[in-house]
Nucleic acid binder design. Structure first.
Lengths: 237, 237
DNA sequence: TAGTGGTCTAGACCACTAG
DNA sequence: TAGTGGTCTAGACCACTAG
């Protein structure tokens, strides 16, 4: 067993104390200077330890006040989802069904926060594996003049890549919402499912750094082709 | 707009260069000292920027060699899953159906990596919302003598908490696997579903720090009660 | 005003890499 | 042997908190 760096040891020590309830939720931890004296290390080393705890959601810090314990984090997983690679299957293809400029429905006015008089781009795509339809993808982008939406791009790009025409891709925030539901009859028809058959819906929201919605939509997935896996949790240090 | 700290600016600058393909996959970045000279900052500040990029999966570093670009990460989401709170519903309850000491099936021998002659603890639970069965949970723990499994605990604890009798909870690694499937007839009966009806399966694997499996199992979920949401991505800095 | 976390510097020692 | 990333220190200035 290799000796861990001191800042990792300190982080683990405090982690354990939070797990054991020695530091309760929202209780004040000793200051960085105090911890430095306790562990006989410099303040920078303490900060490294606290940064790990911060990244892993064990504590939060408020400048001028101090660092506070959170509830020990559990049950969190990192998972990868891309509509262009639902099953890590090379046979997966996407076909553009249509691109329309439409008036927003009340749901779109609410979710995309668009003015009722403005327009919205609607992109409909069918996703197939071995020519069999497995998912129907319906995405919306607020229609700002100057957004270059090229059909070729829509055909071959993942939705987030289209949005990178609007904002830099590393500034896009994504939110995911997956749930079981029954799709509309016409979607069921496209997916060759019986009416009223259950499917899995993947709702995706894309926001810029100022939390302005820049894209939203749903992917309706044949439940037999639904599969997501968690990625190994990174050790942040 | 508040001016960002220098190390964040440097991180964003390098991020952008990776996004734009200026640094390609596995290509060597300038050394920390070189970057420090380029940006006119100390090496520690460069390291802070690179640590962010490391945590966010933009780069990897090899001591003695240097730091290298990865492919720009996309499509990653953090989500929370707990069998004790499938729908954030206070009416959710769990009921212990049974605890058995069983011989491992070939699947269990493989996944839990247990010796075929050893025994395995099998915990079966039913999860209800408003008295309606929504999920059937089947979990396995290798049977080591000295593992205190108390029925009361099983009744009220999440599975990971039971495992914390074996290893410290913050040392448990978790893996998640969610997919659509059809359950066995007897599970469908318990969940009051028609035979052959689709359900969502949540497969969970629990490992200790040395990657030894310490628990595994499946949760079969009525598709109408399936819902997971991503958490806002933390900014690691 | 004393204390807090956030940021940054200059300097040091280390194990490791690759010629 | 020169260069790399990993770790750690002592010291500094800052905006903010809360009495």
């Amino acid at each position: 067993m290799i000796e861990q760096p001191i800042h990792i040891q300190i982080a683990n020590d405090i982690k354990q104390q939070i797990e054991l309830g020695i530091y309760k939720k929202d209780s004040l931890l000793p200051s960085e200077n105090t911890l430095g004296n306790q562990y006989h290390v410099s303040r920078v080393t303490v900060q490294k330890a606290l940064r790990i705890l911060n990244n892993e959601d064990y504590i939060y810090s408020i400048p001028g006040k101090g660092s506070f314990a959170k509830e020990a984090p559990t049950d969190k997983y990192i998972l990868k989802f891309s509509e262009l690679n639902l099953l890590d299957n090379r046979q997966q293809k996407q076909k553009l069904i249509g691109v329309d400029i439409v008036s927003p429905t009340p749901e779109l006015i609410y979710t995309l926060h668009v003015h009722p008089q403005k327009k919205v781009i609607h992109i409909k795509r069918l996703i197939t594996i071995n020519e069999f339809p497995v998912a129907y993808d319906s995405k919306y982008i607020p229609y700002y003049s100057g957004v270059p939406i090229v059909e070729v791009e829509i055909n071959y790009s993942a939705f987030p890549n289209l949005l990178s025409n609007i904002v830099s891709p590393y500034e896009i925030k994504r939110e995911l919402n997956i749930y079981g539901s029954t799709a509309d009859d016409n979607i069921n028809e496209i997916l060759m499912l019986e009416n009223g058959a259950p499917c899995v819906v993947v709702e995706q929201m894309f926001l810029d750094t100022e939390n302005t919605p820049i894209g939203w939509g749903r992917l309706y997935l044949n439940i037999n082709y639904f599969k997501v896996e968690s990625l190994p949790k990174k050790i942040m240090n």
